[in-house]
């Protein structure tokens, strides 16, 4: 479904800060995969996601989505195929706009926007229903400005927005990292539920290794801009956090996870 070939990205080339963040990375994602991505700080996890959706251009390599090379397309043109949820709950929504308006913007992701009214009555009904599935009581707050919602609520709404019209690939960039443990758990379970119900293909970066094991059908570990471990199916289900830590020590040559990763 999505194929990444020899992808390379260097930040600040030619300066003292030069850093090779993605180094000849190869990855094959099949339709229906729910892949969790772990790795230390600076391993290139977020960069990989940003390269896939085009936040910045790759230096080299190919990104092939459903047979089409997309690595040279601008970000807004790729958006029709990707649903995204960011780490910062403020980044996925427009604070000064109503909940319903935000959903309406997302409902038109990748479509041509014209001069018809920004939101229709039937849509409101649809949004009410979809918000109800979150179980956060947001279905009664369609006309509230998003800025009035808590971080967790905003992140749940962003998740809904990203999946409102099924994306080819859902990209989750540590989307629960900024939330308190309880809310993170709720949003994570919602993520699982939505991906399962809509049979989405997803890539989820997380710092929480237990979550990386519990969710999805495949797990990849990254280090120094490349994938050092790739496991799926029953073998993944059997993993324990200690196994991952040990594997990381062996495979990364001992650079080690920080304590903060033992979430």
């Amino acid at each position: 479904m999505l194929q990444i070939e020899n992808l390379t990205k260097t930040f600040d080339p030619g300066t003292v800060n030069e850093k090779k963040v993605i180094d000849r990375l190869n990855l094959q994602i099949s339709a229906g995969d729910f892949i969790t991505v772990i790795g230390g700080n600076g391993a290139g996890k977020s960069t990989m996601l940003n390269l896939i959706c085009g936040v910045y251009p790759a230096d080299g390599g190919k990104i092939i989505l459903a047979g089409n090379e997309i690595q040279d397309m601008p970000e807004h043109k790729r958006a029709k195929d990707f649903g995204r949820v960011f780490q910062d709950p403020l980044m996925g929504t427009a604070a000064n706009m109503q909940l319903a308006e935000n959903l309406a913007l997302a409902f038109r992701r990748g479509k041509r926007r014209g001069l018809s009214w920004g939101i229709s009555e039937e849509e409101r009904e649809l949004y009410r229903k979809r918000l109800a599935t979150l179980g956060l009581g947001l279905e009664d707050r369609l006309n509230d400005k998003i800025g009035l919602l808590s971080g967790g609520q905003r992140q749940a709404v962003t998740l809904l927005m990203a999946t409102l019209n099924a994306p080819k690939l859902l990209l989750l960039d540590e989307h629960t990292a900024a939330l308190d443990p309880n809310t993170a758990e709720i949003v994570l379970n919602l993520t699982d539920q939505i991906i399962r119900e809509q049979k989405l293909t997803a890539l989820m970066v997380t710092h929480n290794m237990q979550a990386a094991i519990d969710h999805g059908n495949r797990l990849i570990m990254m280090d120094k801009g490349n994938i050092i471990y790739d496991v799926r199916g029953p073998e993944k289900q059997k993993l324990k956090v200690e196994d991952l830590l040990r594997l990381f020590q062996e495979l990364s040559g001992g650079s080690g996870f920080s304590d903060s990763m033992l979430g």
């Binding site: 959706c53 936040v55 043109k77 958006a79 996925g92 427009a94 604070a95 000064n96 038109r108 992701r109």
Partner: peptide
């Protein structure tokens, strides 16, 4: 639709690009 996405641009450019 166009007007709404312009208002969103003032709020959050990253989101607008992510929405195509």
């Amino acid at each position: 639709e166009i007007g709404s996405i312009i208002r969103a641009t003032g709020n959050n450019e990253a989101m607008v690009r992510a929405l195509g």
